[in-house]
Amino acid sequence: MSQPEVLNQAFELGYTYTRSTGPVIGRFLTELRNRNIVGIKASDGRVVVPPMEYDPNTAEELSEFVDVGQQGEIVSFAWVKEPREAHPMDVPFAWAMIKLDGADVPMIHCVAAPSEDAIATGARVQVVWADETIGYITDIRCFELV
């Protein structure tokens, strides 16, 4: 008996739509691609980085972008002595809340440091850009101590 013909159909798993990050998050990510960081002014005038679409207290739609610095200050940090596989670094590092120069609200990212003793609340840090920037939050590879 001959082998029955096997029916074949190519199948590509994919999304049938594209997703826009919108005018606020999209602007921030596009600026990252250009190695620039922008924040947005909240209802009370505080500069929020990364920018939010709406003010969490007043629900006002926000639109006034502000360039902020690529250096800032550590507001709080957590020392990861055993990085997890998913973490952005494979050697001990810190997660930190970083208030960039010109911003009023800290952002969370990772900080490269040789040891826990080298890092402290109040320490100055600066952005380390990824080799290739593509408009993701990971365009900021990490921060490093100044």
Binding site: A86, A96, M107
Partner: peptide, 15 residues
């Protein structure tokens, strides 16, 4: 802003 960094729940509590 955060999920792509895989910042875990313990690290956030530590902050």
């Amino acid at each position: 802003y955060l999920a792509p960094l895989w910042v875990d729940s313990i690290s956030l509590a530590a902050l």
